[in-house]
Design a binder for these strands. Sequence first.
RNA 1: GUGGGUGUAGCUCAACGGUUAGAGCAUCGGACUGUGGAUCCGAAGGUUGGGGGUUCGAUUCCCCUCACUCACCCCA
Length: 429
Amino acid sequence: MTEDASAKKDLAAVKGTKDILPKEVESWRALERLARETFELYGYRELRAPVFETTELFEKGTGATSDIVTKEMYTFTDKGGRSLTLRPEYTPSVVRAIIEHRLDLEVEPMRYYYMGPMFRYDKPQKGRYRQFHQVDIEVFGEKDAAVDAEIIEMADSLLRKLGVSGTETLVNSVGCRECRPAYSQALREAAGKRKSDLCPDCQRKAETNPLRIFDCKVESCQAAARSFPVIQDFLCGECLSHFNTLLVFLNQYRIPYRVEPRLVRGLDYYTKTTFEIVSSHLGAQNALLGGGRYDDMMKDFGGPDVCGIGFAMGMERVLAVAELAVPKRKSLYLAYLGDEAKKSGLELARYFRANGVECLVEFKDRGMKAHFGRANKLQAAWVLVVGEDEMKKSRFGLKEMATGRQVEGTREELLALLRDKVRGIEAPC
RNA sequence: GUGGGUGUAGCUCAACGGUUAGAGCAUCGGACUGUGGAUCCGAAGGUUGGGGGUUCGAUUCCCCUCACUCACCCCA
């Protein structure tokens, strides 16, 4: 069996990717269903964009200096010589789609959601994969900070439905193009004075992106950072008022939050509000979702001057901490004895399936005892018994496995019995 | 990209450098040819992640490599 042994090694899933097996898929579907239901209650509509885009889209949108673009993208050249990239995030695609289809001229509110795989070439660890899945929502054309609060409230509501506990909501403002430069400059100066206290990495960040010094975990850097100016003191009038309004609405929603001046999202495009919901039950990769406002992206893409805000939720991470009640499957196992009964049995299964009953049928000769053993193992809710006696009478046995009760009836009578009990199974989507 | 930890059956784990690498659970078959879960019996399942080295002898010690994992970093 050397073939199997080498196959096992060579045909393994690619590093950082994994299979979602039938066992786990139930909770994925529960998450997807709850997310859809929740978002649609707020007037969101699904928008499905392609898995790959031009590389340029992410260079412009995500930011040419961001880590994602500089070192984490799956970029390739197609046979037409185009440079394409498997999307590392979803926001630029939505913005592109809006401009391309002039969705800003439609009547519907510009509120979109999507779920699907994203790709980043990171070193895998707990809660971090190279192909991972995000639930993403975006709102366009709403300047009011009330919507900033509303999407946080919506995220909170979804997490509750998912049975997620032990979370903390962090909010901040990173200012805008008017006020952030002054703050960056002030930070740079402060960092310059404490240069000897900073690690080499942070000395570099002081030049390129001083806000990121706050992320550093080196003790001396943190100590230095505590003495640095806080962005709240540098916000322009508009940004400050926007931030205060956000807090007012969060209070009104009674969403507990913590203002975290060090919260600096790693994507270049954020303006004003940024936020994150973290879990205390995860390891280092503890952000369940994160997002913020990006008022300039659409305009920078050459589109209309329409503001935007959104967040992305990591599905693997949420599922790791969610406590979901997965609906139990209710299926009917077909137990037949002999070739004639097999034929009738198959017709019966066809009939029940046509009427919405899930039937488990296996084509292996078994005795009645073995059939029941198998049905039990498959956790079938019922067993349909078809043997010679039943065929003669056209009346079949139906046993409810949980109670052991068995009744006899025509297929129509049995269907009537099952109908009520099968109802409540979610329709396949 | 940088560190640390771990790789033995489908899963969880044993085996002092020394016979043919074992056990539990799971799987399959039988006891048991018209009614499940239990019990008993049996079978199958492994190039000990891969390669090299030390040794009379390596699952065990050393080196390389790959994978998984945790952390840095980054982020969902």
